[in-house]
Nucleic acid binder design. Structure first.
Lengths: 333, 333
DNA sequence: TCAAAGAATTGACACGATTCAATTCATAAG
DNA sequence: CTTATGAATTGAATCGTGTCAATTCTTTGA
């Protein structure tokens, strides 16, 4: 079996306390012993047992990241940011996938509690959930990711989704579109709620006519379904705005297959600006979000909250979305 | 702070041993006490401390998954399979991203050792690595994912990459192509090695002429670079085969931007058959792999190895790739 | 009513690291 | 050569749970 602290101590001819010091406070041990112990550690291939360490210290160096869809490149980009930032601080990341289901989300939170994570970064799949208090009572920091928090008792890092919705409608109306279909997911998802708010607000100002097509999940298969629903409408819209790029790709495929041209017959706008956007059948115009940056910022914020819990001031950081125009949107003919 | 075993025991008026039995062997404790203790557990919101538990038992219910690129939809699909299967068995998954770097891979393996994972599923970023022995000595099971193992002392779940390479070249040559460019990654990556073997073998049989364009990473940005290199070639090929779809998307973009038509001027074939394939500018022909199934199978195999380490017989499972023809490949004119 | 068998419960010890008061060692000043 | 001081090292106690031999309680049959 693998070596433990005591083995190292015996081998190096020092006490376990000293070995522990070598690992955690190398400055208090003499250079000579330091070197000798480190050599022994290397020889035995000793790796400290994380559990024992954390059992004693009370804290782990692990954080949980709960996203609604790992298959969505937007979230993998976020995850990459989280992982890079965490790794820099020597934290490991548990990546969990809630699939937009509150049930799965709660299940994973339970698992994370058992794993005694130090903090959790979560993209809530439902606008109201009280499970988070539960975590905090256990001393686990929680920060909201890609969602703005209502109460200031927690950190959040988000992108202004209301503004994103506005920008989208402003863009489409500036191209002359007034008949717009808004393709979106369940109205329990925070991002959906906010983007809808922005859409409706901008529609009022620009006198655009919005009809909503709602699907249960925000992936590209559902986008194809949405396209069918749109084709079945009494009156075809002149523009379509989708709550994320995956939906938009599905809609695009559904429409192209039905012989509808983009953007000649209908303009199509996505949200997230995932990398594939410029490789799609018609390069997709979209609302861009700083995904990687979002992840990095969130992880740094969470870890700093974990480590300085007393003097930590909760922050709500909000990034601004940006319009990226490619080929799928054009002026109304 | 949150309650522990001792608190529950005191509150319920029993010993810690009994509470522990309630949790782990409820059959040995009397129904009356069982109920009382369970009620107390609920009242105090007690959740067992995973560390202490695992420290004592020596085993965690956690596995590590190391992939070369989380941003690649192929791997997120694999990861999804792993997670679903693990979750069914009550295991949590650490998802790590090696970015095709041996250094990062080793770093994550260290982290996984510290986290005392029960097993590791890994897509090696280099064909030879001895770190795995290190894990096994520590009692951590290791199974290879998406790579065939040479020695039968470990499990592996893979797709026949040699055959995949052959299928690809057979397809292209059957369309009349003889001048083919093989766009691929570093020849240290196992998949690259195997696919190259298949390519060369089939090329010999079909008398095709293969020239290789090698890029350091297998993502779509590198694909764009590869397209530039291809355009700079003395003689344009009539077909291009890419080691994965991301590369192919990049190549596609690079060529289309340069005014080259696909498949009229050149046929393009990818590998992985990721979901975007049918949404791309030109729907991409590709070699399909059962990604989700790969993940599920690997996780089940690994977990069964973990739990029945004595009577476990190592298995090498190999799936077969399949050709998916879309619009990016056509007969040579 | 009593003894024996079986069921239920107990509680000390172990897991492997961290912590910190106590001890030993090294150095410099008197 | 002593002593005072600070640096380095030690090792027992501790974290929260699982295990298991030992103990107590309950039931059963004569």
């Amino acid at each position: 079996m693998s070596a433990n602290l005591r083995d190292v101590a015996r081998q190096a001819g020092v006490s376990v306390g000293t070995v522990s010091n070598v690992l955690n406070r190398p400055d208090v041990v003499s250079p000579k012993t330091l070197e000798r112990v480190q050599k022994t550690i290397a020889e035995l291939g000793f790796v400290p047992n994380g559990f024992a360490r954390q059992l004693r210290s009370g804290y782990s160096r692990t954080i949980g990241l709960v996203v609604t869809d790992v298959a969505n490149p937007f979230f993998t980009e976020v995850a990459r940011g989280v992982e890079d930032a965490a790794s820099k601080r020597d934290y490991a990341v548990f990546l969990c996938n809630s699939d937009e289901s509150l049930e799965k989300e709660n299940k994973y939170l339970s698992v994370l509690i058992q794993q005694q994570v130090r903090g959790v970064l979560i993209t809530p799949s439902d606008s109201k959930s009280h499970q988070y208090e539960n975590l905090r009572e256990r001393g686990i920091s929680v920060a909201l990711l890609d969602t703005e928090t209502k109460n200031s008792s927690q950190c959040s890092v988000s992108v202004d989704d209301v503004r994103g919705g506005e920008i989208a409608i402003e863009h489409l109306t500036s191209l002359g579109h007034r008949e717009i279909v808004w393709v979106t997911g369940p109205d329990t998802i925070p991002q959906v709620i906010d983007r809808t708010t922005g859409v409706m607000r901008a529609a009022k100002v620009t006198k655009a006519d919005i009809s909503t097509v709602r699907v249960p999940l925000m992936n590209s298969a559902q986008g194809v379904d949405a396209a069918k629903k749109i084709l079945a409408l009494k009156k075809m819209p002149t523009a379509i705005f989708c709550a994320n790029d995956l939906l938009a790709f599905g809609v695009m495929r559904g429409l192209l297959d039905a012989g509808i041209r983009i953007p000649e017959d209908v303009s199509l706008l996505g949200y997230d600006d995932i990398a594939f956007g410029n490789s799609s059948a018609v390069p997709l115009s979209s609302i861009s979000q700083p995904a990687y940056q979002l992840g990095v910022t969130a992880a740094e914020l969470l870890i700093s909250e974990c480590e300085e819990s007393e003097e930590h001031a909760h922050q709500q950081i909000k990034f601004q979305p940006q319009l990226v125009v490619r080929a799928s949107t054009a002026t109304k003919k």
